Simulated scan of single mutants.
Amino acid sequence: MPATPSFRLDDKVALITGGSRGLGRQIAEAYAEQGARVVIASRKADSVEQASREIAEATGAETLGIAAHVGDWEQCTRLAEQTYERFGRIDVLVNNAGMSPLYPSVAEVSEELFDKVLGVNLKGPFRLSSLVGTRMVEAGGGAIINVSSTASVAPRGDIVPYAMAKAGLNAMTLGLAREFSPTVRVNGLMPGPFLTDISKAWDLEAFAERARDDIPLQRGGEPGEIVGAALYLASDASSYTTGTIIKVDGGSAYGAH
């Protein structure tokens, strides 16, 4: 056995939710480059079709885009079924889709907003993991990766429902690691602030100033910087890693002062 483990994903099938942009797009492209067949899921059909086409052209990998709203129980069921119909298996599931709408105050959070945030960030990942993880156990193995957030351990007042959902996702990760053991590994990624397309709405000057005080690496993450940890958890390199949540946050979650 070689001393250096392989991060290759040859012949594996990876399903990535929220895969048409941001960190999900980076992960999908990296998996395709490493030999995986990639299924990209997101709400908008045109977005997933475009992302699927572009990744296939860039990497030569077989890709598939499926429009699905992961906050909807039945659409999660259909997403899993469509992927199994096309490829016959899922080796890697990345629950990356997320949302955190702005609200004026916690007292003004509507039930609709609350349910939507919990649905996309927690209910959907639970439903997909339950379906896919059970079939992974039957198939003899697989890897589930839940994309959490440093908000789950260092929440702010303007993202409370989101932080609650991501904290629940952390708990789900640990529980399913035991439920699906020993053949299926379930782990999490905990990103801090990343400079994806979402950051275009930020006051970047104010963010840079805060980062110098609150983030040990003194900056936001570049999207490609999630890839190393995402490849590790998907590949055989992490064969003895389960029930683990890896922070990729520049030290921000515990670095504030």
Rank of each mutant, 00 (worst) to 15 (best):
F7A: 10
L9M: 14
T17P: 13
R21K: 15
V38T: 14
R43S: 02
A45D: 14
A51T: 12
A56C: 14
G60P: 09
G60F: 07
I66T: 12
E74T: 06
E74Y: 06
R78K: 02
L79F: 06
T83L: 05
T83M: 04
L93I: 01
V94N: 11
G98L: 02
P101C: 01
Y103S: 02
V106R: 00
A107S: 09
E112M: 00
F114E: 01
F114Y: 15
L118I: 10
G119I: 00
V120Y: 02
V120F: 02
G142A: 07
I144H: 08
I145H: 06
V147H: 11
A151T: 02
P155E: 11
R156V: 10
I159D: 14
V160Y: 12
A163W: 01
A167I: 04
L169D: 07
N170E: 15
T173Y: 03
L176P: 04
A177E: 07
A177W: 06
N187C: 13
N187H: 04
W202R: 10
D203H: 04
A206V: 05
A208C: 00
R219E: 05
G220D: 02
G221A: 04
E222F: 09
P223R: 01
P223G: 01
E225D: 05
D236M: 11
S239E: 14
T241M: 10
T242K: 11
K247V: 00
V248I: 04
D249Q: 05
S252A: 13
Y254G: 06
G255H: 03
A256L: 10
H257R: 13
